[in-house]
């Protein structure tokens, strides 16, 4: 292999891109352990900002709300989305169905947010965590369906027929044959929808209603950022970053085992 100057330049560029991507995140993590909380002066290592977080009932309540919303919308969308994927894979390809399922993934968040708020208001529905769950399920169903479909594409349907020929019912066949094969895809889809839901801000903001009780974690973070730069956000950021990186690594591992 010759060391080509273009190759060197490309690799240097890639290195700089990683610096660009990771420096802001690393700065937040380092600052979260800074006693003064200021970005410019290091006054010693401290976990005091994490302690402040643990004693902040607003943040804890918001985190709890987000967890409820994410779990509920993940359960709904994993169930409905997996069925949808199976139904779509069984029949002839239908471009209209494909477009309908792609729509929630590409429609701008703000448009889905105003559409759902208008819909709920027209129905006189009371807004709160339940309306956020229903709203998040819209895009999550689409993502689950897409992820599970890629898994089903490599699925050998003859084993389903074999199971039915051997006298197993549809339900037994699904439980004992289909599900074990598509399980890694379903779990990866569930992890994806959990992550998307727990991070989602603008749709939740529009459909949460006026009550303080339905503030989600991103809504709380937004309010804190609007209020000003406070060191507590650095601690939140570090926890969120650690948590989401863990989830990604987990789903990576699942994908590798599935492949």
């Amino acid at each position: 292999m010759r060391t080509d100057p273009i190759r060197l330049w490309l690799n240097a560029h890639l290195g700089l891109v990683y610096v660009f991507l990771y420096v802001p995140i690393l700065v937040l993590i380092v600052l979260s352990f800074n006693k003064s909380g200021l970005p410019t002066t290091w006054t010693g290592f401290s976990t005091e900002w994490y302690g402040k977080l643990a004693g902040n009932p607003k943040i804890l309540a918001a985190a709890g709300n987000s967890l409820i919303v994410a779990v509920a919308s993940t359960l709904i969308s994993t169930f409905i989305g997996t069925l949808l994927a199976m139904g779509m894979e069984e029949g002839k390809p239908n471009p209209y169905l494909d477009a309908l399922v792609a729509a929630p993934m590409i429609i701008p968040d703000i448009v889905l947010a105003i559409a759902l708020l208008s819909f709920y208001t027209l129905l006189n529905m009371s807004l709160g965590l339940q309306s956020i769950v229903l709203s998040h399920a819209v895009f999550n169903i689409a993502f689950v369906c897409t992820v599970v479909r890629t898994r089903l594409k490599n699925f050998d349907r003859s084993i389903v027929e074999a199971s039915i020929d051997l006298g197993a019912s549809e339900v037994t066949t699904f439980r004992r044959v289909t599900l074990p094969v598509i399980a890694p895809g379903v779990i990866a889809a569930a992890l994806l929808s959990f992550t998307l839901s727990i991070d989602e801000f603008i749709i939740a903001y529009f459909t949460a209603g006026a009550g303080q009780g339905s503030t989600t974690f991103p809504m709380q973070i937004y309010a804190m950022i609007r209020f000003g730069v406070t060191p507590e956000i650095n601690a939140i950021a570090t926890i969120v970053i650690g948590f989401s990186f863990l989830l990604v690594l987990l789903s990576q591992r699942l994908n590798r085992e599935a492949a």
Partner: peptide, 25 residues
């Protein structure tokens, strides 16, 4: 490359406030 994308959008945006503001890094 994709890893930072999976952390919260608001937090990634906030990181730039910390870097860019008048008293920022």
């Amino acid at each position: 490359v994709m890893l930072p994308f999976w952390s919260n959008y608001l937090i990634r945006t906030y990181a730039w406030i910390v870097l860019l503001n008048n008293e920022g890094l």
